[in-house]
Design a protein around this nucleic acid. Sequence first.
DNA 1: TTATAGTACCTTGCGATACAAGGTATTTAG
DNA 2: CTAAATACCTTGTATCGCAAGGTACTATAA
Lengths: 123, 123
Amino acid sequence: MNTDNTKSQMRKGMLEYCIMLLLHQRPCYANDIMQRLHEADMIVVEGTLYPLLSRLKKDGLLGYVWQESTQGPPRKYYTLTEDGQEALLQLDANWDEIARTVNFLKNLDNKYKNNTGKITNFP
Amino acid sequence: MNTDNTKSQMRKGMLEYCIMLLLHQRPCYANDIMQRLHEADMIVVEGTLYPLLSRLKKDGLLGYVWQESTQGPPRKYYTLTEDGQEALLQLDANWDEIARTVNFLKNLDNKYKNNTGKITNFP
DNA sequence: TTATAGTACCTTGCGATACAAGGTATTTAG
DNA sequence: CTAAATACCTTGTATCGCAAGGTACTATAA
């Protein structure tokens, strides 16, 4: 089984949420985000991140300012707009709903296994 | 913001996991799955479900048997294969990792807001 | 018998997205 | 002046959710 692909699929949509959570804490530019997500055990690469940031900018959820750097070219520091903060609340709700659903199903599964010991009740 | 689309994106990969959790409890045919997921607050439609089941079958994670019905055409009752049960363990791990990451970021965010009260520490 | 409704399965086409790979521009070090 | 490092972005591919439409079987009613 292609576990990498499944993990990648599971991340779809989550990445957007995670990045907005990060930006809610403080402004970041691309490398900041990649580094901080890496610390949180979520890998993201440039080819994923830049289009995502551009899209959120285009949708009005993010803004950015150019900031000079002491070690290279200037950086785009992204921040959440007001619309972005509202959207983040929606994403919070979406996440809670999904987590609730998954945990509900996992609990059903555990309960089932504990009660019967095996899986034999074919209709 | 298109919340429906975001939710749809967040479900990518999760659906596969949820369906395998259900099938780990007992064999189901398509309508069973849609109904039980609906009870768990996760909507699935035919156009999503059938290709997904076919793919998991093709990958060897699911098997099925035809079963006569008293109220219509016969049904395909799907079950997890051994490979499917192994894959489910992987998906469990993937889910845990993602949930851990998201909660880590959410806690960071909460801690940040509680400590500072507002978001002003621009670099 | 034929027509209609209900059930169950499946396919096609579209939009969205993660990712690999490759490209451009700026700054600094040698 | 060149090379390396940093930072930004684009293109092409594969995958997936979903709306819409299609096929086939069964039961019921005219």
